[in-house]
Design a protein around this nucleic acid. Structure first.
Ligand SMILES: [Mn+2]
Ligand SMILES: [Mn+2]
Ligand SMILES: [Zn+2]
Ligand SMILES: [Zn+2]
Lengths: 140, 140
DNA sequence: TAACTACTTTATAATTATTCTAAAGTATGT
DNA sequence: ACATACTTTAGAATAATTATAAAGTAGTTA
């Protein structure tokens, strides 16, 4: 059982309520991901490198993958793709939209985009969600 | 120089006008990709397997990758991503939208979706395109 | 047509992102 | 403290893609 300061309690509860034991590694990763003001969009490699840079005792690659997958399964992360062959993850789990600006990803709140016309789902199907990507380029 | 029947001429011209020599492999791949009524969405592995199944003399993996990249650079293919780590290509190069239905991809013509409200591009940037993904699930 | 040269194809090796394996370590219940 | 199931880890394995370099071909020129 680890040191239980109030700073960590919220993450420990979050993990516990998803059936994940609050190990040191998971708590550290959760703090890093969720203890911030703005949405965080990242790849597992980016997460690993930025966390391990500051640590004497490194967390293993497998644990980063395991934990990110567990948090995604528990509904705390969403996965998405850019046009390279790497998975990205999003700490904003609500349905929302994005600007893509040369590899940089910026959230657009759901209510900033509304539709005048949308197609019907094919028969037998229904719409799960609608997400928009606005690709940007530099002026001039 | 290869057999120049009229069936192939259009693809030979297409390749030539992009500075690509119309080799047998490139012409075959172009015919397979573009000589069809409906949009084709595919991965390089899928393309390779379905073409080579029917051929006695196989085209190499590297040539499939080289040719798909060349066609993309020439503007004849668009690349996109689903939520796995594989690149998909689209023979519909116009800006358009998609239904994603459990790995199946269906085109939505651009004019089937219109917007009531759209955010402005951040300063210094402008909008290159806006593309919508409608995720489907089964009824009930 | 023969020769020349640049471009292309190919088998194979290398790389990258990710997943798997199995042994050692840890959290939780008793 | 003990038992047990869950977790972490290093390292091997896999999948998609890219790089390498030798052999083949297309377009050009003599
Ligand atoms: Mn991958
Ligand atoms: Mn890949
Ligand atoms: Zn986001
Ligand atoms: Zn399409």
């Amino acid at each position: 059982m680890q040191k239980m300061n109030n700073k960590n309690k919220i993450f420990i509860d979050k993990l516990r309520s998803s059936g994940l034991r609050p190990t040191n590694q998971r708590v550290e990763i959760s703090k890093f991901l969720f203890n911030r003001k703005k949405t965080f969009h990242f790849t597992v490699e980016e997460l690993k490198n930025s966390m391990n840079l500051k640590r004497s005792k490194k967390i293993s690659t497998a644990t980063f993958y395991n934990t990110v997958h567990a948090l995604k399964s528990a509904g705390y992360l969403k996965e998405f793709s850019l046009e390279n062959n790497t998975s990205y993850y999003d700490t904003n789990i609500s349905s929302h939209h994005h600007f893509f600006d040369n590899g940089k990803v910026i959230d657009i709140k759901s209510d900033k985009i509304t539709f005048r016309k949308l197609p019907e789902a094919p028969k037998g199907k229904k719409i799960k969600n609608v997400e928009v990507v606005i690709r940007l380029e530099n002026n001039n």
